[in-house]
Write a protein that binds this DNA or RNA. Structure first.
Length: 203
DNA sequence: ATGTCGATTTAC
DNA sequence: TAAATCGACATC
């Protein structure tokens, strides 16, 4: 019997009877700058080894495809970047510095190669874990390259749901760790929840 | 086949 | 301030 594929999951401990609404393609189909901003405050859900890990996303960065010198897509369509060019709504996970996996969400239209790097989250449900920083976030959620190309709209193990509806002050800043990217290093493509203590760093 | 370097983290 | 650690990519 295959697992049920539904956009609704009943796993909100704060209110078990309240269905969580899955983030669907309509959000992922937006350009990276817009998607990155809208993803602040949403909840990342990971089901692994019979457990559910949840965290509220508080920091993201937008990567704008081939024209963006900070994006891997600027190197062209390769085996590694193929998912970015072909699969909006799917995960793009890659290894950096030989030891950290980076969790990205492919966004935009097919061929745009836009992506959003998820950089920090607040652990929920009493889960105590430092998720402030992209390497630590992926490690905490047990996300690895094995999760590359996962469909976030249909996977039962990795997906996003709507956060609690509330006003969230969002700040934009330059992106972190891309000083090599010429003028692109100054673009305001990093988004943070201005009131969260879980943001990886101030700037 | 070989050299360079990174969308980071941690320790000194 | 620098090491860790390895795969992607460019170049030879």
């Amino acid at each position: 019997m295959p697992a049920k594929r539904s956009s609704v999951a009943y796993s909100n401990p704060a209110n078990p009877s309240a269905p969580e609404k899955r983030i669907e393609m309509s959000l992922y189909q937006r350009p990276a700058k817009e998607a990155a901003r809208r993803l602040i405050g949403t909840i990342l859900v990971r089901k692994i080894r019979g457990k559910i890990l949840r965290g509220r996303i508080v920091e993201t960065e937008a990567y704008l495809g081939p024209i963006d010198l900070a994006s891997h897509a600027s190197k062209g369509r390769t085996k590694r970047t193929e998912v970015m060019f072909a699969l909006p709504g799917h995960a793009y996970v890659y290894l950096i510095y030989g030891m950290y996996d980076m969790f990205n969400i492919v966004v935009g239209a097919v061929g745009d190669a836009h992506a959003v790097l998820v950089r920090a989250a607040e652990p929920l449900d009493g889960w105590t874990e430092n998720l402030s920083g992209p390497g630590k976030l992926a490690r905490g959620f047990r996300i690895t390259r094995a999760d590359n190309a996962t469909n976030l709209c249909s996977s039962d193990a990795l997906y996003l749901v709507q956060g609690e509806r509330r006003r969230t002050r969002i700040l934009s800043t330059p992106r972190i760790g891309i000083d090599y990217a010429l003028h692109w290093k100054d673009e305001l493509l990093r988004f943070v929840d201005a009131d969260s203590k879980a943001v990886s760093k101030i700037r």
